[in-house]
């Protein structure tokens, strides 16, 4: 196994011809530094996960030790409460609807920008490009005001979903437009010759060809929504609407003395994101790479 095969599993690597040098292990210094970096990166995560397996007396006696013996009570109790599942469902629902809306609307706009020629096209592209400069943090107070003014909107999941869709669109459009523009003109012409309308071309050719880009965008949007804290904090006052980050934060201040349970709660809400990430790691990393290369 040479490193050529290893790098073959990474997205966007230039294809490298294996040279005799490639087979080596490299200098031990690199491994040492890598290990140190990984230890720092994973330390807090492991502390949280391991802490969930200890009870409060263990934690109070020695805050930094490993579980001895392992206690499964905390995790079991978190999983038994309806509160946890309620929040997990809220987070999932909001993230999924956000992703669907961002992808559907984003692909449509990107298709228009990439495949139609019209007077306002450059203006439209710049509008979305400028959207990248609008951080959501700054818009959050007026968004809250707007939501309280729209009847039947305040405190519902939609008051979080719609702003997330709005703020998710610029990144989606900027990533997908070059993607769709790169589909060769010849394919479109061939489709036309075969009697396919432009919308038919869109549904039958563009959407299948855009799938890799769409997956990247979808994952970025999903993780962003899943991790969101400030928007739910502003929008939700009713506990039954809380998403995981907000709910766990509230829980941790309500039961601040019950460290073990907080840690169990925290790791239970961390683990879905970690599993999701490990499943789609290549897509996320590859997507960021693509986004930067613009």
């Amino acid at each position: 196994m040479s490193t050529a095969t290893l790098s073959g599993t990474q997205p966007l690597t230039l294809t490298r011809k294996p040279t005799p040098k490639d087979g080596g292990w490299g200098s031990p210094v690199i491994y040492f530094i890598s290990l140190a970096i990984i230890a720092v990166c994973l330390g807090p995560v492991l502390y949280v996960i391991m802490g969930g397996f200890r009870d409060n007396s263990q934690i109070n006696n020695n805050p930094a030790a490993l579980p001895n013996p392992f206690q499964f009570n905390q995790y079991a109790e978190v999983l038994k409460t309806g509160r946890f599942w309620r929040m997990a469902w809220n987070s999932t629902f909001i993230a999924l609807i956000t992703v669907v809306c961002v992808v559907v609307f984003g692909v449509c706009v990107a298709f228009v920008l990439a495949r139609y020629k019209f007077r306002l096209r450059n203006g439209m592209y710049l509008l979305f490009a400028a959207g990248l400069m609008f951080p959501m943090t700054m818009a959050i107070t007026p968004l809250y005001i707007m939501m309280t003014r729209i009847p039947g909107m305040a405190g519902t999941p939609w008051s979080v979903i719609l702003p997330q869709v709005g703020f998710g669109l610029p990144q989606t459009v900027i990533i997908l437009t070059p993607f769709l523009a790169a589909i060769p003109l010849e394919i479109e012409e061939a489709a036309t010759v075969d009697g396919c309308s432009r919308l038919g071309f869109f549904t039958r050719m563009v959407i299948p060809l855009a799938v890799p880009g769409v997956i990247t965008v979808a994952i970025l949007t999903f993780v962003g929504s899943w991790n969101g804290y400030m928007l739910p904090l502003y929008m939700f006052s009713d506990q039954s609407q809380y998403t995981l980050p907000l709910g766990v934060a509230v829980f941790s201040s309500q039961y601040s003395s019950d460290t073990a349970r907080i840690l169990a709660y925290t790791s239970m809400s961390m683990i879905p994101a970690l599993i999701f990430f490990s499943l789609f790691e290549k897509r996320i990393v590859g997507g960021l790479t693509g986004a930067v290369k613009g």
Partner: peptide
């Protein structure tokens, strides 16, 4: 050139994927 580079890349990225709020509590 080194072994396990893609694994290191994944692990280095872990803190970024965790929600700020969740990481903050820990």
């Amino acid at each position: 050139k080194m072994r396990g580079r893609s694994l290191i890349r994944v692990l280095v990225f872990v803190p970024y994927v965790i929600s700020e709020a969740i990481a903050g509590i820990g």
